[in-house]
Write a protein that binds this DNA or RNA. Structure first.
Lengths: 202, 202
DNA sequence: GTCTATAGCTGGATAGAC
DNA sequence: GTCTATCCAGCTATAGAC
């Protein structure tokens, strides 16, 4: 028992600390973005020194990659947990709602939407790319199924729908509404979903 | 004549060079973003030295501010040039189309959408803020008029519509479609406009 | 006004003591 | 594994020669 439990305990503590590091990283990424986030920021926020941080993640790229992977895994979990009674469009809507709430709660947007450099960096991270491909193929199937149902427009190609769907998960209108209007979280989410699926007309 | 024309000539050459600098700045901003754009990048692209660049713009912030101001002025010009036969919604649609085409042609997105730091920097630029306020008030009036017409939804607050409209002008789906699909510029614009106003359903 | 050269600073990453 | 101290590259901005 002794050795194994000790290892296990160490491993647990290690994982807990890594999770704390990723929490800090996520929070800073969400506010400052990749370029302005420094390793000192992360280390200071959790009260360790920079070299200690580098014992856990050997580069800034790897650290950010790990945070993004955790986010994608969260999305996959959500998707898997939706009841089978949900239609394809229900699932897409519910997942977008989850992503918007994560962001409104100080979390990350899915996509490094503006920065080519960040996207390219992530695309060199095989683990991350694997997660993206898996999630993307699931969502693509949902889009196509919803189009067959008539729940999403058949006048649009599935590419257009899928990319626009991704874009809504990191729509800057969310932050503008949070900052400049008096709307509460639920109203913002409700309105963003409506705009996504019904558009600005009607 | 001599003195005046000489001054005028110098002034003209100066303006031409400034325009070239702003073109270079715009192009680099569009690809690398603010944080990764260096003053060396700008100077090298137009073949002058960095100190010469600083003779024209006394800081990176001022340079980027000037580029953004020129962009906003372009938008205002467009808006003023639309025929009076256009409805409020026609104008909003045509202006969004113009913005999307500018971006597809390698230009800047309107908003520093992701980066708080860039937005805050711009908000310290009074000239820029003045342009934003002016354009915003024009667009707000158009939105409200279009809602009265029934051309835009009255179930949404004008804030939600306006912020979502801004967001569409820097929608990352544009770049994704340009990069990963085989669609041509006109099709991308057409689809983006449709998604903006009609949404993903229908 | 244009350049070369450099100051001054910041941030990613590491050496080496404990 | 943790820290202090430091290296080194790259960037903004400027001094000073021509």
């Amino acid at each position: 028992m002794s050795i194994f439990s000790k290892l296990k305990f160490k491993d647990q503590a290690f994982r807990l600390r890594e999770d704390a590091i990723l929490d800090a990283t996520t929070s800073i990424l969400a506010t400052k973005g990749f370029d302005l986030m420094t390793m000192d920021d992360v280390a200071n926020l959790i009260g360790i020194s920079k070299p200690s941080l580098y014992k856990h993640f050997k580069s800034k790229e790897e650290l950010v990659g790990a945070a993004m992977i955790r986010l994608l895994d969260g999305a996959s979990e959500q998707l898997a947990a939706f009841p089978e009674t949900f239609s394809a469009k229900d699932k897409l809507s519910a997942l977008l709602e989850w992503a918007l709430r994560v962001r409104l709660d100080g979390g990350l947007p899915f996509l490094p939407s503006t920065s080519n450099a960040v996207r390219e960096m992530l695309m060199r991270n095989l683990k991350y790319v694997g997660r993206v491909i898996k999630l993307n193929s699931q969502l693509e199937k949902l889009v196509i199924a919803a189009q067959k149902n008539g729940d999403l427009s058949s006048k649009l190609s599935s590419d257009v729908i899928l990319f626009s769907y991704y874009a809504r998960s990191c729509d800057p209108a969310v932050e503008y509404l949070q900052r400049f209007s008096k709307m509460d979280t639920d109203s913002i989410v409700e309105n963003m979903l409506r705009v996504c699926f019904q558009g600005l007309e009607d």
